[in-house]
Design a protein around this nucleic acid. Structure first.
Length: 287
DNA sequence: GCCCAGGAGTGTG
DNA sequence: CACACTCATGGG
């Protein structure tokens, strides 16, 4: 690890508040000046808006950080095409331009899996605290007070007691069990599975049900057709589309309605529903 | 102190 | 398949 100077990343459109603050990823914090500092792989990066992209200040740099960040922020996603596609939806059509800077992220598969197992039945501030605590306890320090997310082997060596000390509650047992069940090459192999097969294999892991499996498929494995449905999405689907029912039924609704970019639609709707609850503001409304 | 959380697992009707 | 109950804990 060595210090490196600031560089630019061409990526457009992107809004850091929307992308890093919407609750899809948990290792970023917003600085008072509007920049965001977080951990990607073994790099610690400070991002700020700059012209047609981002200015990146590496606080701790790793060899492939530019490529890693580009992948992480899904720089090659053609947001204009995605929005044109989703904009055919009557509900999304009106306000979709306001969230054009909300990009999905593509996290490391392992980090994403554990993060969303921890995310069950907890609020976002607590999820961040749990993940920071796990990283601090078991991950390599890459900068003063900042630790990379622990590898499979790092966590495999952690005892259940030490995991519990991170404030994970009953989730500690899930993490331990996943370390036990998951073979060293399993996640790599799963990258080649179809969405349906990937989903069903993820659901075979302890602590992974319908919703977590879809989150990991979307934010970890980059399957844009995945449409995670949590309490917020149930509210959104009920309020905006008048639909309710089982996970399978709502999934089928989303698949037919939003198609291969359902994941983007999900994050737009998730952000919208949460900002309605927390700030009383919303972009999308029912017909 | 109370409430609830980007649910999952298990048991029962 | 639908529902009920429990799970351990901390941030708001």
């Amino acid at each position: 690890l060595h210090a490196e100077s600031r560089f630019r990343l061409r990526i457009e459109p992107i809004d850091l508040d929307l992308t890093l603050g919407c609750g899809q990823t948990f290792r970023w914090r917003r600085d008072p000046d509007g920049s965001w500092t977080g951990v990607v792989g073994r790099s610690v990066l400070r991002l700020s808006a700059s012209g047609h992209g981002l200015a990146v200040d590496p606080m701790a740099a790793s060899p492939c950080m530019k490529k890693e960040l580009s992948i992480y922020l899904r720089a090659s996603d053609d947001v204009a095409t995605i929005q044109r596609n989703l904009g055919r939806d009557e509900v999304l059509s009106k306000g979709i331009r306001q969230v054009s800077g909300l990009r999905l992220v593509k996290m490391d598969e392992w980090e994403c899996l554990i993060s969303y197992v921890l995310a069950t039945y907890a609020n976002i501030p607590r999820i961040k605290a749990m993940i920071d605590s796990v990283a601090t306890a078991f991950g390599d320090q890459v900068l003063d007070g900042v630790h990379a997310f622990p590898s499979v082997n790092d966590l495999r060596e952690a005892s259940l007691v030490d995991l519990s000390r991170c404030g994970l509650g009953y989730r500690a047992e899930y993490v331990r069990a996943i370390c036990e069940v998951l073979g060293p090459r399993d996640l790599d192999r799963m990258k080649r599975l179809s969405y349906a097969d990937l989903r069903s294999e993820l659901k075979g892991l302890p602590g992974v049900g319908d919703k977590v499996a879809d989150c990991v498929a979307l934010f970890g494995f980059g399957r844009l057709e995945a449409f995670p449905i949590d309490v917020w999405m149930k509210r959104a689907l009920s309020r905006l589309y008048g639909v309710a029912g089982s996970y399978a039924a709502l999934s089928e609704f989303a698949r037919r309605r939003f198609g291969g970019f359902a994941g983007y639609a999900q994050e737009y709707l998730f952000y919208n529903e949460r900002s309605l609850a927390t700030a009383g503001r919303c972009i999308f409304s029912e017909e």
